[in-house]
Nucleic acid binder design. Structure first.
Lengths: 221, 221
DNA sequence: TAGATTGTTAATCGATTAACAATC
DNA sequence: TAGATTGTTAATCGATTAACAATC
């Protein structure tokens, strides 16, 4: 892989914008599937659930892909955003921990359709090694290194119990994985250069509970 | 429920802080279970994966629960944060859509241990109404109103296919649910006063992919 | 040309961080 | 008292928003 020249590269896209690009991508896909050829920033913003000023500002970091007075070509903009995110290429992924959540993740069709390919399901529990989930054999966790090497895996998903998660992360990092999606209820420590994103179901519910509690207090008795 | 007086209430806690309170709560629980009586902001910050300045700033919105020169009493601070979030009370929750993800959510022990009680599992598909998941009967979606009324449900979880999610949300809102955790891959539109939080697995992976792609470009060939 | 809509500017708002006075 | 650590201040940084000139 060649380094980009500074001219084309490293236009720094703010994190908040990066987090919204996949939302725009999905909205554009929906528009495209419904036969829409062109859309305004107002149309797309509504479909994505943001305001149009924010949308235009976000898109301005990628380049100038619209036409003043007209709007955006849906498929063209969709391609440009997909390219910017990196989902025009195929990303091999491993999932570790094939419990209830691991099953759900392995079966989730949204990964495949967005450029992610689950190349292996791993679990430390030998009683699970007979299983086939979503057409993929569950294999021993110790196969990790070999699988990562053979498939060029850069992204790992951790769906183990909290107690096992740090060990799994360490092993992942040791064999070259540099992006981790963590569903375990624990804070992972990883070296600089490794990205971790955390999805925590109970934290989301707690944030809702906080606001719900305040609504109840404000309402008349 | 009585309205708070302005003196005790409505100390506005920033959203970014609210989102971190559950993380602190979990870290304190871990510390407490390991027998720790007292911790400094530095200790807790490390356990929570933030820096100590941010932690102290966050805690300052709740009040003054530490002792200068000493630190925080783990159990006392844990209780204060739990009370602020609202998880000292019990929150009845319904889950709609009992596919792979719905199964995983129903079986997730982290809800129960954090003040959330799954009172019903609902699915529109009659072939699922025989099932018992995590000890709870799967019931027809049309039972929603009755269940919400009888149990005082304020929080709903949507784990249906994208196509069904808006209808489910509309029905939830109509019968008084005002907080929704949405796992479906769609933007929900709801009236003002209803909170929606969205968990999107493929968006998280796409954000990782974006950064991964840039790492590859920076590395030497 | 007239109307529409982008891309950008500048102002505002909110979050983070370092530093340190207060105080145990 | 001396050392430790909180709670708060103020500076900085990043994100959002409204407005509008550019331009199709």
């Amino acid at each position: 892989m060649t380094a980009r020249t500074s001219a084309e590269s490293t236009r720094d896209i703010p994190e908040a914008t990066v987090a919204r690009l996949p939302v725009y991508l999905r909205a554009l896909t929906t528009l495209s599937e419904s036969g829409t050829i062109t859309c305004s920033s107002e149309d797309l913003a509504q479909a994505a659930g943001v305001n149009s000023a924010k949308l235009r500002k976000d898109l301005s970091y990628l380049g100038s892909y619209g036409t003043r007075g007209v709007g955006y070509d849906v498929d063209y903009l969709r391609y440009q955003i997909a390219r910017e995110i990196g989902v025009t290429q195929d990303w091999p992924v491993v999932i570790v921990g094939i419990g209830n959540l691991g099953h759900a993740l392995a079966n989730y069709s949204g990964f495949r359709s967005r450029g992610f390919r689950v190349v292996a399901l791993l679990d430390a529990d030998p009683t699970r090694h007979d299983e086939v989930v979503a057409g993929i054999d569950v294999r021993p966790f110790d196969d990790l290194e070999q699988i990562v090497r053979e498939n060029g895996v850069a992204i790992g998903v951790i769906a183990t119990p909290a107690i096992a998660a740090q060990d799994v992360a360490d092993r992942m990092v040791a064999c070259g994985i540099s992006s981790i999606l963590n569903f375990a209820a624990t804070v992972l420590s990883v070296p600089a250069g490794v990205d971790v994103r955390k999805v925590d179901l109970s934290i989301e519910l707690q944030i809702l509970a906080y606001h719900e509690q305040r609504k109840a207090q404000v309402e008349p008795a």
